[in-house]
């Protein structure tokens, strides 16, 4: 088990012929993801370097391949339209990797998505991850070198996005036989956390990069709920950063609804107010969105806090009360 995606998820890439789209389509395909095709208007009927079929429209790709997930690499000006197209075609999991999408586009996207999900049946719900995110990975046990699709890294995992796959560990190959679910607003900080937890002997059920933009798809609460209900997730690590109040809201949610051990880290303790720290959403404004306020609320709601980014694995171990010897 896992959340959002697994070995059976069939994935397409919107923007498959662009340089990033092509690079990461190959990365996912070589990892072992069931890549079934891609979309670039005007290139329908051709194939990419991996031999994957290219379609003019998402609907065309879905009709021909049965794809239920997509990763979007189109330029920011066209990202909202790409998401709308995926929604219209009934794609279940949409990962928008693109950075730099206008906020007002995302306000409209969220309205359309929320309206869809409000009336959708339980199996028709659409999950948007991102934009400005690394994507989602559900690791599988290592079965090959991962250097080509003929020798994939795993035949039982799914990677949708730009993250390195090999740093993740499947439960069956973890020393402690336990899984942590990771949700994060930052890409490389997620890799850091995956690395640390893997080194501690833990596996990961699923890692979700929700992205660094102020208005986005899945939020922390959505992901905590997914992990809470996933029998394959033993503990949760939530990695936030300055800006907004999503971490505080998620901490409140956990206090009422959470039962699994949880650890957290907030990036940006030293960030000056009013300055945007790389991510569009990482800004302290009008005295709200500070790291201290988030950490205080998370501590109060039962999170084990990582004091530094080097301590994220350690915080998970403390939350899970792992034996010192094992760590």
């Amino acid at each position: 088990m896992s959340v959002l995606i697994d070995a059976n998820t069939k994935v397409i890439c919107q923007g498959i012929t662009g340089s990033f789209g092509a690079l990461h389509t190959k990365g996912c395909y070589d990892y072992g993801t069931k890549m079934v095709g891609g979309v670039t208007p005007g290139k329908g009927g051709t194939k990419d370097d991996n031999g994957l079929p290219i379609f003019d429209t998402v609907q065309g790709a879905v009709d021909a391949t049965g794809a239920d997930a997509t990763m979007i690499f189109v330029p920011p000006a066209f990202t909202a339209d790409a998401i709308f197209e995926a929604v219209a075609a009934g794609i279940r999991v949409i990962c928008a990797i693109t950075e730099g999408v206008p906020v007002q586009d995302m306000v409209k996207v969220r309205k359309v998505l929320d309206d869809h999900n409000a009336v959708a049946g339980p199996n028709k719900k659409i999950y948007l991850v991102g934009p400005n995110c690394p994507g989602v990975i559900t690791p599988g046990p290592k079965t090959g070198s991962g250097k080509s699709h003929d020798d994939p890294y795993t035949n039982a995992g799914c990677k949708i996005g730009i993250m390195p796959g090999y740093i993740n560990t499947h439960r069956s190959e973890s020393k402690l036989g336990k899984n942590v679910g990771i949700v994060s607003r930052s890409g490389t900080l997620t890799y850091e956390a995956v690395w640390q937890t893997s080194n501690l002997g833990l596996g990961q059920s699923t890692c979700i990069g929700i992205g660094g933009d102020p208005v986005r798809g899945l939020g922390f609460i959505d992901c905590l709920e997914l992990f809470e209900n996933d029998p394959d997730t033993d503990a949760i690590l939530m990695i936030g950063e300055i800006g907004g109040t999503d971490e505080e809201a998620a901490a409140e949610w956990y206090k009422t609804n959470g039962s699994k051990p949880i650890a957290g880290f907030i990036a940006g303790r030293t960030a000056p107010p009013g300055k945007r720290m790389g991510h569009a959403g990482a800004i302290i404004s009008g005295g709200s969105g500070t790291a201290d306020a988030k950490i205080e609320k998370m501590t109060e709601c039962g999170f084990e806090i990582a004091e530094t980014p080097a301590d994220m694995g350690g915080a998970v171990a403390r939350a899970m009360k792992l034996e010192a010897a094992a760590v």
């Binding site: 930052s186 890409g187 490389t188 950063e241 300055i242 790389g278 990482a282 530094t308 980014p309």
Partner: peptide, 21 residues
């Protein structure tokens, strides 16, 4: 640093060990 989140937290860990980013 590579990545915004890691860059921010690298500043934090410098401060944690007594430096100023």
């Amino acid at each position: 640093v590579n990545g915004a989140g890691l860059a921010m937290s690298t500043m934090d860990i410098i401060k944690h060990h007594g430096g100023e980013p």
